[in-house]
Design a protein around this nucleic acid. Structure first.
Lengths: 234, 234
DNA sequence: CGTGTGATTGACGCCTGTCAACGTCTGTGG
DNA sequence: CCACAGACGTTGACAGGCGTCAATCACACG
């Protein structure tokens, strides 16, 4: 890691051992370094659009990106969020299909772009990397399948509680127990799969039950155990 | 393919070019052939249980297997079906996690068991196979994400129509336009994510609208275009 | 200060889940 | 051959969760 020099902005994503690239050889790292480019995206920018062809994937080194699909009447369904260290868009690169999601920046982000041919080359030549990436895909698959079950069987209230906990696990809390990610009510609705108004009503219900506190978009988790109970987590 | 000899029961799954194993070398095929075992499962048998450790994956050479998760109050959510040529259980093998679904036979089935170490060995040593398997995982991921959107945004009626079409595409129709797969009302409910009674009511509604005909568990698709319209497919 | 986006609240009603009762069919055992 | 049990299918009644529509408020920004 000390040998890496002049691309400091990538230290946090592709080159650090925390990420998917930990099993690359030094030569492969070097190749990757020469292939990748680095971009900055302001909040609100679209990284790629559902239905467009993707020429490579992205590794997030800073910021937050929401990944969503567009459904009926243009209503978006948020599938997941990507933060520092996460890799996005590899699904479409590997299958050669058009992007089946849109990636939009919700907190100013720095991303590394990894050309598709580089990724595919690595998959084919490095069995360990291949395994790592496969595990990543499989884990995402497991999560998606779990969410299908939730969304099919749980009430909106239970799902909202569960999502709050997931956001906590994913992005953490500050010293005052505020969620470190801030979302609009509409975005919360688009994760849970419900109407904005329902989210608003349920949030204020949670507040009245002393599960959370609301300060604008910042949500403070007060009674996490009660939230877990509400989420019906076994 | 002509060189393959004495394991006829596997011709239809692991050894044929239709499946995921098309990019194996002759030596790898041979290795696989010596590692796999073959089993017959009667309708109703469980191949593996959610939460159990899996020592390998299975390739379906005959029959139909339903893959489901168990949610609230033991209600099952069907994630997918596997038929001839499909491979199941590889997700857990690759991630080393416990099985996150249960696999249950709904039509008498023949399966090849592929030990986990064989699969992992192939992934690591054969880049093309690795790519193929990765693509499979990624496609499943895309499907699951699409279904999340559907289930979050569409009505039960729309989802039922969509599922009927998917079953048609997946398992086909006989000469009289009957779906070749027969499911109980409860199973249909567990795909769509609703109550059995709702499925019954909607099916008879579809019948009254001349979209389908019902003969016990056999469902005949009469007006496929109207079903598509009902499913809200763009 | 006007404009626009997001948050909130209330009214209303339909979709859909739940409960209960009953019908149908199949297989089993007496 | 009949009775019975059990699984599955069907129908009706009912309530409530949640989506939709509309109006209003809050706040930021040019």
């Amino acid at each position: 890691m000390k040998s890496i020099h002049n691309i400091p902005s990538c230290d946090s994503c592709s080159l650090r051992s925390v990420t998917i690239f930990k099993n690359l050889s030094p030569e492969e790292h070097e190749m990757l370094n020469s292939d990748i480019t680095h971009d900055f995206f302001k909040k609100g920018s679209i990284i790629y659009h559902e239905g467009s062809r993707i020429t490579g994937c992205y590794c997030v080194s800073k910021g937050i990106v929401k990944i969503y699909k567009t459904g009926i009447d243009g209503k978006e369904q948020i599938i997941t969020f990507a933060k520092k260290g996460n890799i996005i868009g590899f699904r479409s690169v590997l299958t050669g299909e058009l992007a089946c999601t849109t990636a939009k920046v919700i907190e100013d982000a720095s991303l590394c772009f990894i050309p598709g041919y580089s990724l595919i080359k690595l998959v084919k030549q490095n069995g360990n990397f291949s395994m790592d990436l496969m595990q990543l895909a499989c884990k995402e698959l497991g999560q998606s399948n779990a969410y299908i079950t939730d969304i099919a069987q749980k009430t909106v209230r239970e799902r909202l509680a569960e999502i709050l906990l997931q956001l906590k696990d994913n992005f953490g809390l500050d010293e005052d127990n505020f969620l470190l990610i801030t979302l609009t009510r509409e975005e919360l609705a688009n994760i849970v799969g419900t109407a904005t108004e329902s989210i608003i009503r349920l949030l204020s219900e949670f507040k009245n039950d002393n599960l959370i506190e609301l300060h604008g978009r910042k949500i403070k988790l007060i009674n996490i155990n009660a939230i877990k109970k509400m989420a019906n987590i076994y």
